[in-house]
Design a protein around this nucleic acid. Structure first.
Lengths: 195, 195
DNA sequence: GACATTTGAGTACACTCGTACATATACTTT
DNA sequence: AAAGTATATGTACGAGTGTACTCAAATGTC
């Protein structure tokens, strides 16, 4: 789907920044976080990345390809982070604690990751190409949770994280963090986790 | 925020369709469902509604106002439906059953409501004006659930509905409906509901 | 050093957009 | 019937868009 990275290696020259493609992707995510997919344009991304407009169509096959590349990158980064987080837990109890902290952080204040994931979801509900990204995201999330929970519980917990995070983020009035603990306790059946 | 509906009544004349404003709102939701907020324009909405372009700025104070009106309408409609659905339940058990059916329906196949709610969430993560709509939506949803569950359970169940629906909808591979039952059973503590 | 080839940049074009505004239409009042 | 007014519409404008395409620059090869 995406244009190949221009051939690198000893035989072919690349003059300027060899990480230009990556720089554009990061700039794109930043622009999306600020103004949404709706407000994203080649020109804004180019300006943010500090590259000429022509580079947009040079490195990517149009806007769709750019968005797809950017969200793929995002999904990978977030999945990596979550995997690492779950790996630091030693048992069910501490895994619950990590999940709790993650929800608390993601749902409070302005978090780019939350905004970006919603933008992705919106694209995914309409276009299958983006649904492969969300599918893989969820799969990896599930796998990370399965290090500590049985498959069914992992799925339910994964969905719960999603729901609680969204409801906390989109409610105008602040919510009691204890709700998070209660949700995790009920879904995982780790009673000692609720207070 | 929104332009007032042009005065109606016996004293002032209105030539064409007296429900024009409403017609535009419905057309707007339809267009959003098809091409997303990103792809929505005054011209497309006007064409869909069968009204002249000039009517867009006549009935609404610009695009933002149109979107806000449209999503307010959506939220009200969906909340009404859910309220009615919960009122038909007679006890916890049947309330769980209704919730189950609702998740199953919303998350399977193409449902405009799902697409539209995501578009709204995306706007809400960025703009407070839209967050008042999501807040009210969630509040009403909670109230409906509180007819059968205690406040905390109602909140948790509300979030669970959200999470499970999203994960079912955005996963490329189909999921076992039993997951829904399991989620509801664990969150509500109605054991007989899980099979 | 000279040539060939690839990489990257700037520009221009065709198009869509939101919105303001002048104008026309239908209704109410006199 | 005439005048006046509120309602609705068509149009035009300036801004911003994606992308194709031309050409300069830098590198690899001889």
């Amino acid at each position: 789907m995406s244009k190949d990275q221009p051939t690198s290696g000893s035989r072919l020259g690349r003059r300027n920044d060899p990480e230009r493609r990556e720089k554009i992707i990061q700039a794109c995510l930043q622009v999306i976080a600020e103004v949404g997919v709706t407000g994203t344009s080649h020109r804004k991304v180019a300006a943010q990345a500090g590259v000429p407009l022509g580079a947009m169509t040079y490195y990517f096959d149009g806007m769709q390809d750019l968005l797809h590349s950017a969200f793929s990158e995002l999904a990978t980064r977030v999945s990596d982070d979550f995997e690492r987080l779950m790996d630091t837990a030693t048992d069910k109890q501490s895994a619950c604690e990590k999940v709790y902290e993650r929800i608390l952080q993601a749902s409070s204040g302005y978090d780019d990751e939350l905004v970006l994931s919603h933008e992705l979801y919106t694209l995914a509900t309409r276009e299958p190409a983006f649904r492969t990204i969300t599918s893989e995201w969820m799969r990896r999330s599930r796998v990370s949770l399965e290090r500590h929970f049985d498959p069914l519980t992992a799925r339910l917990l994964d969905a719960t994280i999603e729901g609680v995070t969204i409801h906390r983020a989109l409610d105008a009035q602040p919510r009691d963090p204890e709700e998070i603990r209660a949700a995790i306790a009920r879904v995982t059946g780790v009673p000692s986790f609720s207070s």
